[in-house]
């Protein structure tokens, strides 16, 4: 690693001030950024650790039936705290990486990085979440802007994520067996006004909504409703040694059916 200064502010305001400096970069749980630094793929002059900011941690249910999760909340905490109100999300969080990674990795870090194979982007887009930052609120539909690209500006921090609690939901991940990242992951969430289906791992453009499945499932929430749909187009999907675009497209349909069948 190139060397850098590391600071640990204890409030959002202090963190924002520290990030105002040239070449300063935020550090969440570090489960992606630290390996990146080791490969010398990033060269910040200052890292602003967000892990000591108490006001950015924790999970609570809001009056309008959403789950509000602090941006600095680790996956293990979400897995535990969301279990009663939002089991689909708890299950997703409980299966990211491994236990030691879940002790460090955070929801804000995952969404800010927007890895095309990460799990949390599927939950955020699949619930129509609101991403709250130190500056503004961003709807999930506007937030994800392609592989590793988001609406976040330089120095902007995800302070909270609000996910409307669905009537039923489930996340199905087909793991790439070496990395255990999602080769394809599908999050399905059923609300009174319709169903949302978000897909991670598959597209060259990052997480996306499968609108045909949403329409079919909104009128008939059953695995059978997915059967009648044609497989999504594989030409825009990631093709690599782990699977072709057409293979990933096929998995999208299979996993959507499984998620609907398992939704609770």
């Amino acid at each position: 690693m190139y060397n850098f200064d590391l600071v640990r502010p204890t409030s959002i305001d202090e963190a924002v001030a520290a990030l105002g400096e040239e070449e300063a970069q935020p550090l969440g749980g570090g489960q992606t950024l630290i390996p990146t630094l080791k490969q010398r793929l990033a060269m910040p002059s200052k890292l602003v650790s967000l892990t000591a900011i108490a006001e950015m941690k924790g999970v609570c249910k809001t009056d309008d039936n959403a789950l509000a999760i602090g941006g600095g909340t680790n996956h293990a905490t979400v897995a535990q705290e969301a279990a009663a109100d939002f089991p689909g999300l708890a299950h997703l969080a409980a299966n990211i990486g491994d236990p030691a990674v879940r002790s460090r990795g955070t929801i804000g870090g995952s969404l800010a990085n927007n890895d095309p194979s990460a799990c949390y982007p599927a939950a955020a887009l699949g619930t129509g979440a609101t991403i709250k930052t130190n500056k503004r609120e961003i709807a999930a539909d506007d937030y994800f802007q392609g592989m590793f690209a988001t609406a976040l500006e330089e120095g902007e921090i995800i302070t909270e994520v609000r996910l409307p609690i669905p009537e039923a939901s489930n996340y199905q991940k087909f793991e790439q067996p070496a990395s255990r990242f999602a080769l394809v992951g599908v999050f399905v969430a059923k609300y009174a006004d319709g169903v949302r289906v978000a897909v991670t791992g598959a597209s060259n453009d990052g997480v996306f909504r499968w609108s045909e499945a949403e329409a079919a499932l909104s009128s008939d929430f059953s695995a059978g409703a997915v059967d009648g749909l044609s497989t999504p187009d594989g030409s825009g999907m990631i093709s690599d040694l782990h699977g072709s675009g057409d293979y990933r497209a096929h998995l999208v349909k299979v996993l959507t059916k499984r998620a609907v069948a398992a939704a609770s």
């Binding site: 590391l6 570090g30 650790s49 030691a100 002790s103």
Partner: peptide
């Protein structure tokens, strides 16, 4: 670290202050 299992190769010493 504070009772939670972590990978010590993927955490900075200063974060354990």
């Amino acid at each position: 670290v504070n009772g939670e299992a972590v990978k010590a190769c993927t955490m900075f010493a200063a974060e354990a202050d």
